[in-house]
Design a protein around this nucleic acid. Structure first.
Length: 868
RNA sequence: GGGCGUUUAGCUCAGUUGGUAGAGCGCUUCCCUUACAAGGAAGAUGUCGGGAGUUCGAGCCUCUCAACGCCCACCA
């Protein structure tokens, strides 16, 4: 950017400035990290957005917060790396490609694995830059020269190594278990990819006749179509009503197959009939019961969710879908008069997180990670504080999950992803798990791929060069510093990174997990395309500007990480602030006459106002640093807003129109821009480059973040200045109350504090339109309005302008207020226990307050007497 | 069933060691004062969800109740 003029354009055009500024940063490679630097490192890895994705509000929030931390730490002088990249998003991406194929009437099987993958790669390559390009619109200062993809060579090498190592340690195994099977995705999915929805269903009670004797046992089920896979009927061992039946055999209706009646603690006596049919191949709990009792696993539903064609399923039912089979089975049971009862029953049904298809619990051969041994150190790391969650309450959540962890099903029957590095001998079926195929003529690789989260679980170190632990990036930037993400992926992602990171690098992958809330629509609903309630951050950026978006989002972040409800009007807040900054800066720049080297301010030559604003700035610097360090980022936004708008603009700039100190005017703006830069990077950069202060860098990005300076504390002078503001406000209030037009000036009589008021006459004249100021002890005027500021009474003789009754009323209202306050203070002071037990300074403060109130009330009472 | 969160001004929400409540928007009145009407000045508005307790003192701590929301578990 050029720097030939001090002037800013008269109107603030956010998009123009933002585009120019971002280009300036990129052209100058300002985001590229130097792994050989001697500076202390600070690094963040981006939660890799799905390659299929487009930028949404969640990214906008998450990206903004990361960028704030990155920019702040960069300005603290650290060597900073923000690692960008995308996730291959197994199921999500495959779904997109399959949908495209479906338009041509094809399935992936029609074109085969190889062609399908080629197509998917082509699509991914075309799209993999899209979302990161959109992140640029957010002002993201990530290092694109290091951009990674979870399916690139480095990641895939890391994945293979991790898989093989875990397998060799016995922490990965292959086995037949009940898994959550999605008949639409045609794949197993993990427990946490399964969501449960409440549905209305029925509870059918079916009578199973006893073998070789009279009588029957009635079981209750919500899924009668699975009965063909029954292996037993179970009752609770302590259930006296079934005691005699345990060990007997019954005959199944419709098929006549014989199954035993067994006893198991799992059965709840009070539910349904107290008797439960056991279907080990189609229910996770029944599967467990089946193992305990050595029952056969009879599969009657296939991978497409249809009834199998085998000897267990009656011919009329074979090949039917789950839903059809249920209807038909019930009908047949009815015809056979074994359906005892049907009751309405509300229950939870598992759904595929990706496509919302009802899950079929299915017996199948899958790969699993044995989680318990891996979870142990991951629990310790959080318990001992080597990894901290902000806010802390998420630690409990994390620990509860980790302490009850179950094995992780990692195989997916998809094509898009990391193919499992297991190889089977074509003839013997012998299995070898290895980094490479031992003999491609005789061995065929496992066709399954790994869960997407398997590779993203390695993200913090696979992107840093691991397994090469001697690589520059790994040595410099691993472990990373902070992980920023929403609570919705603590289990999916954060927990896995911690376990994998500890297992393979022996270090926690990050020291702090900063968890923010989720973005919701204005009614608190989750945003989703299907609901049509999404707000597009790109639209918001076009309309309000990126900085406005960032500032607003930041200001909505609470320390507790509450969810954030947004509607587009909320972004007026940030836009107005940006506009204010622009205009105030424009004013300052227009008023600078001094040269660059004359703009250092001189401590010995400061007015009351100068000292006040310098003191305020210093306080702000302190608070901002403290709050960022403690992840109270929303607080930072409001501190800076308040400082700039209500202090610098409303007072200091106004005062500067009366008595100008260019050096301070610029100094404060310069520091403010630096303080704000992490949140609003573009506007601060654009203005900062125009400010004629001495700089040792061409970009604010590389300037130093302001730090608190003991030498710039001016407590007493600041207090005096506060008195000035109170006086001006009081006088303005009188003007408003009595409708005194701006062009008619007022005279005032001040009865105390002559020194101070003498100093500030010009301020009073300009900001409260005072004509003359007289000093008079024990002043005594009738036909006047009054205000009392601290210990000073100010009289405004208004002669005919004033309605005396109005003024009396006004003063009486004030007394009322003061007296009610005094009453509660007196109550406290008259309480012996308060005096005894409250801390000294609180008691003193209360006493002082009492005296102030009393004296103020006295003054007002006297003036009222005068008026009457 | 277990856990967590929320309840504060008309609306959206802040409120960091307990000392009597704040912001933005909206509202009322006035002002296009040469940085800004996306602005300026002056205002109004709250038994801090209900109840009880601890304390000299509670929006904040404890208990309890209520409403709403989320997560985990998945009893057929």
């Amino acid at each position: 950017m050029t720097n030939c003029t001090n002037e800013l354009s008269t109107t603030y055009n956010a998009r123009e400035i933002e585009n120019e500024t971002y280009k300036f940063w990129e052209d100058n490679n300002l985001f590229v990290a130097d792994a050989k630097s001697n500076k202390e490192a600070y690094s963040i890895v981006i939660p890799p957005p799905n390659v299929t994705g487009v930028l949404h509000m969640g990214h906008a929030l998450d990206g903004t917060l990361q960028d704030i931390l990155i920019r702040y730490n960069r300005m603290l002088g650290k060597e900073v790396l923000w690692m960008p990249g995308c996730d291959h998003a197994g199921i999500a991406t495959q779904n997109v490609i399959e949908k495209n194929l479906a338009k041509e009437g094809l399935s992936r099987h029609d074109i085969g694995r190889e062609k399908f993958l080629a197509k998917t790669w082509q699509w991914a390559d075309e799209h993999k830059n899209r979302i990161l390009e959109q992140f640029k619109l957010l002002g993201a200062s990530f290092d694109l020269s290091r951009k990674r993809f979870t399916l690139d060579k480095g990641c895939s090498d890391a994945v293979k190594k991790v898989f093989v190592d875990l397998y060799n340690k016995g922490l990965i195994y292959k086995g037949s278990y009940i898994v959550n099977w999605c008949p639409r995705c045609q794949s197993a999915i993990s427990d946490i990819e399964t969501n449960y929805e409440t549905e209305d269903g029925n509870l059918w009670e079916i009578s199973y006749a006893l073998k070789d004797e009279m009588g029957a046992i009635v079981i209750a089920t919500t899924r009668p179509e699975t009965m063909f896979g029954d292996a037993a009927i179970a009752v609770n061992p302590n259930d006296f009503k079934y005691k005699d039946l345990i060990g007997k055999t019954c005959v199944m209706p419709l098929t006549g197959r014989q199954i035993p009646i067994i006893a198991d603690d799992y059965v709840d006596k009070s539910f349904g009939t107290g008797a439960l049919k056991i279907t080990p191949a189609h229910d996770p709990n029944d599967f467990e019961v089946g193992l305990r009792h050595n029952l056969p696993q009879i599969k009657v539903i296939d991978e497409k969710g249809c009834m199998m064609r085998n000897e267990f399923v009656p011919p009329q039912i074979q090949g039917l879908s789950r839903e059809e089979a249920r209807e038909k089975t019930v009908k047949m049971l009815e015809e056979n008069q074994v359906l005892v009862k049907v009751t309405k029953h509300i229950h939870n049904v598992g759904k595929c997180q990706r496509c919302n298809t009802t899950i079929e619990p299915l017996l199948s051969k899958q790969w699993f990670v044995k989680m318990e041994p891996l979870a142990k150190p991951a629990i310790e790391a959080v318990k001992t504080g080597s990894i901290k969650f902000i806010p802390e309450r998420w630690e409990k959540n994390y620990l509860m999950w980790m302490e009850n962890i179950r094995d992780w099903c990692i195989s997916r029957q998809l094509w898009w992803g990391h193919q499992i590095p297991a190889y089977y001998h074509n003839k013997t079926g012998e299995m070898i798990v290895a980094l490479e195929n031992p003999d491609s003529d005789n061995y065929t690789q496992d066709t399954d791929v790994l869960d997407t989260w398997f590779s993203s679980g390695l993200w913090p170190f696979e992107t840093m060069g691991w397994p090469d632990t001697e690589s520059d990036d790994y040595k410099k930037f691993y472990p990373t510093s902070t992980l920023v993400t929403g609570f919705d992926i603590i289990f999916f992602w954060v927990a896995r990174m911690i376990t994998m990171g500890l297992e393979f690098t022996k270090k926690p992958p990050f020291s702090t997990v900063y968890i923010h809330g989720l973005i919701r629509d204005e009614h608190g609903q989750k945003m989703s395309k299907s609901k049509g309630n999404t707000v597009d951050p790109v639209d918001l950026i076009e309309k309000y500007g990126c900085d406005a978006l960032r500032f607003t989002l930041t200001s909505l972040c609470t320390y507790g990480g509450q969810d954030i409800k947004i509607s587009s009007e909320k972004f007026d807040y940030g836009r107005n602030f940006a506009n204010k900054i622009w205009n105030a800066s424009r004013y300052v720049l227009m008023n600078i006459t001094k040269q660059r080297n004359e703009l250092e301010f001189n401590l010995n030559n400061l007015s009351l106002a100068d000292k006040w604003i310098i003191n305020e700035l210093n306080k702000t610097i302190n608070e901002v640093n403290e709050n960022i360090k403690n992840y109270r980022i929303g607080e930072v936004a409001s501190i800076l807003y308040e400082f700039f708008w209500n202090k610098y603009c409303d007072w200091y700039i106004e005062l500067s129109k009366i008595e100008k100190n260019e050096t301070v005017l610029v100094h404060v703006l310069d520091n403010f821009l630096k303080l704000l830069h992490p949140i609003m990077p573009h506007i601060t950069e654009a203005i900062w480059q125009k400010i004629p202060t001495n700089k040792n860098t061409k970009s604010i990005i590389n300037s130093n973040y302001p730090q608190f300076d003991e030498k710039l504390v001016f407590k007493d002078d600041s207090k005096k200045m506060e008195t000035v503001f109170e006086t001006i406000k009081a006088l303005r209030n009188i003007r408003a109350e009595f409708n005194i037009p701006l062009n008619s000036k007022i005279d005032i009589i001040v009865d105390n504090n002559e020194d101070l008021y003498n100093q500030i006459i010009p301020y009073l004249n300009k900001l409260a339109k005072v004509n003359s100021t007289k000093f008079e002890k024990n002043s005594d005027y009738s036909k006047s309005a009054y205000c009392i500021v601290n210990d000073t009474k100010i009289t405004i003789p208004l002669e005919d302008l004033i309605d005396i009754n109005q003024e009396i009323l006004r003063q009486k209202k004030k007394i009322e207020k003061l007296e009610s306050e005094l009453k509660s203070i007196l109550a406290r002071l008259n309480n012996k226990k308060f005096i005894e037990s409250a801390p000294f300074d609180v008691v003193e403060k209360t006493k002082t307050k009492k005296e102030e109130l009393e004296s103020e009330i006295k003054i007002i009472e006297n003036t009222i007497k005068k008026l009457i």
